[in-house]
Amino acid sequence: MDVLQSFSFYQLMCIALLFIWTGFVRSGLGFGGAALGLPLLLFVYDQAIFWMPIIGLHLLFFSALTLRTRINKVDTAYLKKSMVIILPFTLIGIAGLITLPTHWLLSFIYGVALLYSLLWLFDIAVQSHSQFIDHCLLAVGGYVAGTSLTGAPLIAAVFIRNVSAPLLRNTLFVTWFVIVSLKLSVFWAIGVALQWQTAILLLPVAAAGHYLGLKAHEYILRNTILFKRVIGFILAFISLLGLIKVWWL
Rank of each mutant, 00 (worst) to 15 (best):
D46I: 00
K245E: 06
V44D: 05
L240V: 09
A77N: 03
S130E: 13
W21V: 03
K228M: 13
I225V: 15
V140L: 09
F122A: 00
K80G: 07
E218I: 04
G32K: 07
V186L: 05
F19R: 06
L12G: 04
H58S: 14
L221T: 00
L226S: 12
L18G: 01
A165Y: 12
L67Y: 02
N223C: 07
C136A: 15
A125Q: 04
T102S: 14
L167K: 07
F227P: 02
A193C: 13
L29Y: 08
F62D: 09
V144Q: 09
V230I: 15
L121W: 03
L38S: 10
A113D: 01
R26F: 01
P88I: 00
Q5R: 02
L67G: 08
F7K: 01
G141Q: 10
I15G: 00
A125D: 14
G32A: 03
C14P: 07
L138R: 15
A139L: 12
D75S: 07
T69S: 09
M1T: 01
A165K: 15
L67H: 02
L17K: 03
R161L: 11
K245T: 10
V126H: 03
R68V: 12
L105P: 14
L226Y: 13
F237T: 13
S8L: 03
A189D: 08
A35R: 12
I15Y: 12
K245Y: 04
M52D: 10
I55Y: 05
Y116K: 05
A35F: 11
K73R: 00
S6D: 04
L241S: 11
L29G: 00
F187R: 05
R169D: 06
V84N: 05
I234N: 07
D123K: 02
W51H: 06
L41G: 12
L221Y: 11
I86E: 06
L65D: 04
I155Y: 14
I85Q: 10
V140G: 12
I54Y: 03
Y116F: 14
L29D: 00
L36P: 01
A193T: 12
G141P: 10
Y78E: 10
F122K: 01
L243H: 03
S164F: 13
I155L: 15
K215D: 02
V186Y: 05
F233I: 09
I94D: 14
I71R: 04
L235Y: 12
K73I: 06
A34Q: 09
W188Y: 11
A189E: 08
W104Q: 13
T76E: 05
F62C: 00
I244F: 08
S117C: 05
L119N: 06
Y110R: 14
W104L: 15
G28D: 03
